[in-house]
């Protein structure tokens, strides 16, 4: 058995993903990162929303929670606050995280809560048959944009940095080792981290845009991939439609949210509880929550 295999729940296969889908590559990259960090599967909570990527936690041999559309980060925030000692990861797609759940994405970044998010961006609502998403490139034909998409897409990294994110990275499904490495690095970051994974949906996006097989779509991704250093040297015209990959932003100076919470709010609440009707007993009860959270 290879190291990453203990994180995979084989009995739930086959997966719902189409042959050649980049989500499978991402699954292996995440599991390998788990293995290289030697995390206990029971200490991992994998949370997801709706969509093709939302199905991923089903295949992890960890604690999992499959939440409503766009709300994975909010469920995960609750889990992380109650159990800051656990590794809480969120798997989300572009529609799930930047459209219906866009609100929660910026607030998680603002709070800097220690959730590790893997945002799989295939630029389309794949599961429902290929509707335009906020990350669909301009001019692309989708089921709901038969004349081509006129809306500009979000630059997720810029959006997150603007919201105060402390770890932002981007990789593509073409680059397995760097992808795994950056996911691993994000797991070691203390605050909120997002790894945007540029993935392919040849079935529901490529097919309508002359890239109907995984090879032509991954080639298209490769043609747009540049390193962060290369990207920074480019003119704005050259930068257009390029994906700078690697670690884009890291800030280790801000405290993680649950750490901040247990440092400031919990002791204050304990003091207040001592004076309240429950008295010392109630305060002691609060104390056990702190203990469990910080062990």
């Amino acid at each position: 058995m290879r190291d990453y295999e203990k994180y995979i729940r084989y009995r739930t296969f086959p997966s719902p993903w189409c042959p050649g889908c980049g989500i499978g590559v991402t699954l292996k990259a995440i599991a390998t990162a788990f293995a290289e960090l030697d995390l206990d599967p029971d200490d991992i909570v994998a949370v997801s929303g709706i969509g093709c990527s939302g199905r991923m936690p089903t295949f992890f041999n960890t604690n999992t929670l499959h939440t409503t559309h766009g709300r994975a980060l909010t469920f995960a925030t609750g889990i992380k606050l109650a159990r800051p000692d656990k590794n809480v990861i969120v798997i989300s797609g572009d529609g799930d995280s930047s459209a219906i759940g866009g609100n929660h994405l910026i607030h998680a970044a603002r709070r800097n809560i220690g959730i590790k998010m893997i945002l799989i961006n295939n630029g389309i609502y794949g599961m429902t048959g290929g509707q335009v998403s906020p990350l669909t490139p301009q001019k692309f034909v989708t089921e709901t944009t038969p004349f081509g998409n006129i809306e500009p897409k979000f630059n997720i990294a810029d959006l997150l940095m603007g919201a105060g994110a402390t770890f932002v990275a981007r990789e593509t499904v073409n680059r397995m080792k760097p992808l795994k490495d950056v996911i691993k690095k994000s797991f070691l970051h203390k605050g909120f981290s997002v790894v945007e994974v540029i993935s392919n949906c040849h079935v529901n996006l490529g097919r309508r845009n002359k890239m109907k097989d995984p090879i032509s779509m991954t080639k298209w991704i490769a043609g747009r991939t540049v390193t962060k250093t290369q990207y920074d040297k480019m003119t704005p015209e050259e930068q257009d439609h390029k994906y700078p990959v690697g670690l884009i932003h890291e800030n280790t100076s801000r405290l993680e949210y649950s750490e901040l919470y247990y440092k400031h709010i919990v002791p204050a609440a304990q003091e207040a509880a001592k004076k309240g009707p429950g008295g010392a007993a109630f305060a002691a009860q609060k104390n056990t929550i702190t203990y469990r959270g910080s062990k």
Partner: peptide
């Protein structure tokens, strides 16, 4: 989804004259 898919096809072939709004939820 197929309802919106078909309406989109109708807009494409010119048989439906309606605006589509791509909303986020």
């Amino acid at each position: 989804t197929i309802v919106v898919e078909r309406l989109s096809e109708m807009a494409e072939d010119g048989s439906l004259d309606a605006e589509f709004m791509h909303v986020e939820s």
